[in-house]
Simulated assay, not measured.
Amino acid sequence: MPESADDDALPPGRRRGTRGPAQDEAVSAAIEAAAFDELAAAGWRRLSMDTVARRAGVGKAALYRRWRSKEAMLLDLVARLVRREVPGVPDTGTLAGDVRGFLDLTVAQTADPRVVRIAVDLLGESVRNPALAESLRLAVLAPRREAAAAILWRAVERGELPAGLDPELGTDLLISPLLLRLLPGTPPVDGVYLDTLTTVIVAGLASATPSTSPARQTEPGHIHHGP
């Protein structure tokens, strides 16, 4: 019986009927790695299902059995990656320790140069693609902000931050400065920089009181995901 062109198999001779869970997991892992490699190399606009399949060494049907389109594939893979890699919420017992732990985890996530290239590419594309922007907000930004909010809420419970802390401003302070420093072309991040940034963020959080807008006066544990 000839081998089907639609087989997921990586090694020659493997047929659809012989696939098992381990083989399916291997194929899925190969597709994920190929998709991120291709996205980093070619960018969102030039990436296609064909190029991902070739790079992964599988038939194109292996991708379409999992996702209906390039967009669905990439957004699903990005969301899965974020769920696996979003910074855990460090609990060191102090706000300064938690902030530094959060920063360290963020730096570790960007050690792979593909991550920054992909992030910049998707950010640029989202400016032109509102649907992509909304999907990325839910899949990428929301989990990170939830992790940051947990740090703030614990600090409020410990009495290290005021109970009236503005949660949106607080999460901005925890996330934004370091992400900007990790963009291409910026100086490298070292321990001295992270120590200083931790001190600045902690000081800023102590002053991050709510604005006069009632809509912003919410608990640090609650993240408003609307505009």
Rank of each mutant, 00 (worst) to 15 (best):
S28N: 07
S213H: 08
M1G: 14
L205D: 11
G124H: 11
A41K: 14
V89I: 13
A72E: 15
R16W: 02
R14G: 12
L132F: 00
R114N: 02
A150V: 02
T186E: 15
G88F: 06
R55K: 08
S4C: 01
A29N: 14
W67E: 01
A34V: 12
R154H: 01
V192P: 00
A41N: 14
W67S: 08
P214N: 03
G164H: 01
G13V: 11
S213F: 03
P162F: 00
R16N: 10
L169K: 06
E25D: 14
E168M: 09
A34M: 10
E125H: 11
A5M: 08
S135C: 03
A34K: 12
I175Q: 12
M73W: 10
G159D: 06
M49R: 08
T171R: 15
L161W: 07
M1C: 07
A34I: 09
L173Y: 06
R19T: 06
P11F: 14
E157S: 13
E125G: 05
L178W: 08
F36Q: 04
A108V: 09
A62D: 00
L63W: 04
A139G: 01
G13N: 09
P227H: 09
A163R: 12
I223Y: 06
R128E: 14
R145C: 02
V156G: 02
L178F: 06
A72H: 13
D24V: 12
R216T: 15
